[in-house]
């Protein structure tokens, strides 16, 4: 567990929760990122401004951190370009089919004690762990 970073994980997690709390208590909306992004693809103008502002905020928050602490902002892809593209398709289609992702189901849904979201979160975490087990320990790929 030499890579375990509990303090930054705790601090970052509190900020993520606070962000979702602000959107709920001030704006009355759920911080489900797959829903916010897919909503921007709709041909309707309703709700587009706040969605765009949330996404701009995500980029600004992460961008500010990358600017001030560039050594700590690492984005390392181990997968090949083909795998990355296939994974993106699966994440896009899958999150629409189950109507949520790590934020919408995992944080907001489980935080509301929604049975639907608790089932979804258990399933996607188990599926992701199984996928990593198969690709790293059974097929020999990195």
């Amino acid at each position: 567990m030499e890579n375990f970073t509990p303090l930054s994980a705790l601090a970052g997690g509190l900020m993520i929760g606070l962000g979702a709390a602000v959107l709920l208590l001030v704006g009355g909306r759920m911080a489900g990122v797959s829903g916010i992004v897919s909503g921007m693809l709709k041909p309707s103008l309703d709700d587009q401004l706040w969605r765009a502002c949330f996404v701009a905020g995500l980029l600004a928050g992460a961008g500010a951190y990358a600017f001030f602490a560039p050594d700590n902002f690492i984005v390392q892809f181990d997968a090949t370009a083909g795998t990355v593209a296939a994974a993106g398709l699966m994440v896009g289609y899958g999150t629409q089919l189950c109507h949520g992702c790590t934020s919408g189901h995992g944080i907001c849904g489980v935080g509301r004690l929604s049975p639907r979201s608790i089932v979804a979160t258990a399933l996607f975490v188990a599926s992701a762990m199984s996928t990593v087990f198969m690709t790293r320990h059974m097929m020999g790929a990195a």
């Binding site: 970052g12 962000g19 704006g27 911080a31």
Partner: peptide, 20 residues
């Protein structure tokens, strides 16, 4: 609503970056 979404997004994005 847009301003609260911007503030929420900044906090959320910062949290993702801080926690790696």
């Amino acid at each position: 609503l847009a301003l609260s979404a911007l503030a929420a997004g900044i906090l959320f994005g910062l949290g993702l970056a801080v926690s790696q």
